[in-house]
Design a protein around this nucleic acid. Structure first.
Lengths: 337, 337
DNA sequence: AGCAACGATTTGAACGATCAAATGTTCGCG
DNA sequence: CGCGAACATTTGATCGTTCAAATCGTTGCT
């Protein structure tokens, strides 16, 4: 049985046309007359022909491949999963546009840039999707300088950086959380947050602060700024509740919220009173513990990233028409708040 | 500035040798004399040359790409993350062998097979890594029939299926869990399990059952068989504890363990007594709740999969030398047991 | 010296597609 | 009736690499 893979020449022979006509049917159908087009289409499906991407790529320098870094396997059990879910969602959306997704690991931004280089050189990737943007992000400036198409999930926190991005409005998220607690009659709402200086962290903090101020509450002494660990969440909760009489907590992450939740459970089991906690990210842990939390619309974010990317790719060279999309998060209400 | 991408010809010119010699330096160094080899190496690094994979692939039909399906975004918040971590670990290991990882989604096994077909045809993937093997798995038989290299994470549960695989010894895991509870003096140890008939589920059940029997305890009425949901875990715990006086629980998954944990917490808060629960998978949730659980050595499993794959690929045609690796899980001891 | 055998290196062809230019065909219009 | 424009299709070259065969240079042996 000669079940060789059919090539464009096989198809051409079968349909009694030339290679190029088959190629046109696939890449520029309008150039081909309707009846020959149908004849070629028939030959294609009879033979089960699929273009060989490597051959195509060799000529066109396009691979139909996009790449993403997978988050490092961190010890932060809570944080890990959200990015993985994002990767999944991107893959799903990308497939709809005929792109496949390649994943890679990197230890830091410099390493990531090296990988870009390799991927561009060796595999001729069409584009990248970045996550975890931050102040003075080397990656975006590098990619921009090289003229490589990319979209970030996360806005550019530096003033000068400009590019295509999709992000979730963290400020609106913590604002909604704070609002909800105010509606329930709480006033001294504390914020368990990250150190000042990270774009994402400051944004989330701002949502809490402005909402609290608008309600006439002075936010001074009602917030902390620590690393993103369970232990720090616990300690922060202790400080805000015991020392500063907070009556409810909004947290910058589910990791911190988990710590706060534990502190409150401890207190309850020692006969103390409970009080509401709201986390951020809707991680598996939040769901397991019944934590109210701010959920990011990950699928939508992923879909939007891919859409932006494709429209970027269809517009070669036009670098000034950046597009930005800010998506609204929503509260997932559970027992904790 | 003519900063064109250097090709093999550029390098050849620079080193005063022919294309083929450069190619040999890269692919069959022993064929090239030491001094010319060095000269070529120098030219390569001076120019920053990297072989163009599409061109190479066109000739060799090897892409240096392996593919994996990413788990469907399920509502089972607990289960999702473990496969994602596996994908990550595979990516990391694969990079060490010069492979990149492509991920794809599929709705079911048939759909997955269609994707194999597309990937093989269009991208000429070198191999696949499968997860979630089960009885009468169509995927493995299809791949085998096509002669496509693959390794599964999960053993073939059907009798007739034979292929290269890596798995974790679930039986040993639940056995160790049961052993631990016996050591602590518990006797009526219940098992919250999946329906009979799934390879993985039966294996985990067997570990509990044989260990319990060996200790002289009759396992009858001490186990349940339900779907893998939190609610079922809760209900099972209730039945085993209330109706059949179980004094400790081993669960087939962290999802079920979470349900059981909740039931026990409820009981405690109503003044009842606590009792130990042990889960399976060491998911983020287990860590957050302080659940003792059986952890699978995911990184090791991933690394082994990749190793098997490379040795498979280096041995074209030799289909009879299957290799199987069974890895031992370990208990992660936390508050719950 | 002559020739075989071997190792190192070079040359031509090929992988399967697209690009750019050439060729063939149809049609309108003076 | 002839000519050019517009459209449809074909032809030759090319992308960057490896394969297979050819060439060149040494060495060893008779």
């Amino acid at each position: 049985m000669g079940d060789e893979r059919p090539t464009i020449t096989t198809v051409a022979a079968r349909a009694n046309v030339s290679r190029q006509t088959v190629s046109n049917v696939l890449n520029a159908p309008h150039r081909v007359q309707a009846d020959t087009r149908e004849r070629v289409q028939a030959a294609i499906s009879e033979l089960g022909y699929r273009p060989h991407r490597a051959a195509r790529q060799l000529r066109t320098h396009r691979s139909n491949l996009i790449a993403m870094r997978t988050a490092p396997l961190s010890d932060d059990v809570v944080a890990g999963s959200i990015l993985d879910r994002f990767v999944h969602a991107v893959t799903e959306s990308a497939e709809r546009y005929g792109f496949r997704t390649l994943v890679f690991t990197a230890t830091d931004d410099t390493d990531e840039i090296n990988t870009y280089n390799d991927l561009l050189n060796s595999y001729e990737l069409d584009a990248f999707i970045l996550t975890g943007t931050h102040h003075r992000d080397k990656r975006t400036t590098w990619l921009r300088k090289q003229g490589v198409p990319f979209v970030t999930f996360g806005r550019p926190w530096g003033v000068r950086a400009k590019h295509w991005w999709v992000d979730v409005d963290g400020k609106a998220g913590t604002s909604a959380a704070t609002e909800r607690l105010l509606d329930q009659g709480f006033r001294r709402i504390g914020f368990v947050g990250w150190p000042i200086g990270s774009g994402v962290g400051d944004d989330r903090r701002a949502g809490w602060e402005t909402t609290l101020r608008a309600a006439g509450v002075d936010p001074a002494e009602l917030s902390t700024a620590t690393e993103n660990t369970v232990a720090e969440g616990h300690a922060s909760a202790q400080e805000l509740i015991r020392r500063h009489a907070a009556d409810a907590l909004v947290c910058a992450s589910d990791t911190l919220a988990l710590g706060a939740h534990r502190m409150i459970s401890d207190q309850v089991s020692r006969g103390g009173s409970t009080l509401p906690v709201i986390g951020f990210d809707d991680s598996p842990v939040a769901s397991a513990l019944g934590l109210t939390t701010v959920a990011q619309p990950l699928r939508e974010a992923a879909a939007t990233c891919v859409e932006l990317l494709t429209s970027y790719l269809d517009r070669p060279g036009d670098t000034n028409a950046e597009q930005q999309v800010l998506l609204a998060p929503h509260l997932v209400i559970r027992q904790s708040g």
